[in-house]
Design a protein around this nucleic acid. Structure first.
Lengths: 111, 111
DNA sequence: ACAGAATATTCGATTGTTAGAATATACGCA
DNA sequence: TGCGTATATTCTAACAATCGAATATTCTGT
């Protein structure tokens, strides 16, 4: 009842289940980018970025390559980009209800 | 720096970030299924299944329809099935390393 | 109106995730 | 060797997710 494939999928989804990590993957869409460049682009603390990168590395969503002082990250498999693109279509297709849903979640957070 | 689309994607990923919920979505692949049937198929407590269904409903991954005493669930948009299929290919493409990764995670859990 | 079936909700304990501050490591250059 | 830069790790506090037990709700049949 507990399939390796299902666990694997859950791991990948969990890896992507944070806006910052999605932003990272999107930033890597067109090829490898150094941690420093990511830091400049995303609005997060250095330690926090590094922690998110650790998650993505652990789940093998990204791959890293060290060049001297810097570490370059890239996406391991473009399939994940396709996944993000699919969700973008999904988002657009259900724009009305989706915005309502995000609003709900947001207003609940504020309580 | 914090885009609604990114938040939306993160929400969807989070909704799918659990093996039981993936099993649910997979069980719904070919059309709607009642909660009771899901309960019979998946090896989980009734309350727990219901909780997972609540998560999937909240994130609008599934949609429910009440018929008398029973509640029928179905997937809101087949795009999510495509996502699961993509990940299956991904899994197969990287089978060796992936199994190693799941093993790692598993053995860490046992400590 | 009542009993039983199907499903959902609430509660409390446990575990996992997140952010930021502080610290550590690794590398390149003088 | 020692300094500065780039990145990672550890720690802690706050918060979110999970599970199972118990309870509640909603419906159907009598």
């Amino acid at each position: 009842m507990d399939s390796p494939l299902r666990n694997f999928k859950a791991q990948i989804f969990q890896a992507l289940a944070h806006p910052t990590r999605i932003a990272i993957v999107e930033a890597l869409r067109d090829g490898e980018v150094s941690a420093g460049t990511l830091l400049a682009q995303l609005q997060v603390e250095q330690a926090n970025l590094s922690q998110h990168l650790t998650v993505l590395r652990a789940k093998q969503v990204v791959v890293s390559r060290k060049v001297g002082n810097q570490v370059y990250y890239s996406i391991r498999d473009r399939a994940l980009i396709q996944v993000l693109d699919l969700l973008k279509q999904y988002f657009n297709a259900h724009l009305n209800e989706t915005v309502a849903m995000l609003g709900e979640i947001d207003s609940q957070e504020r309580r």
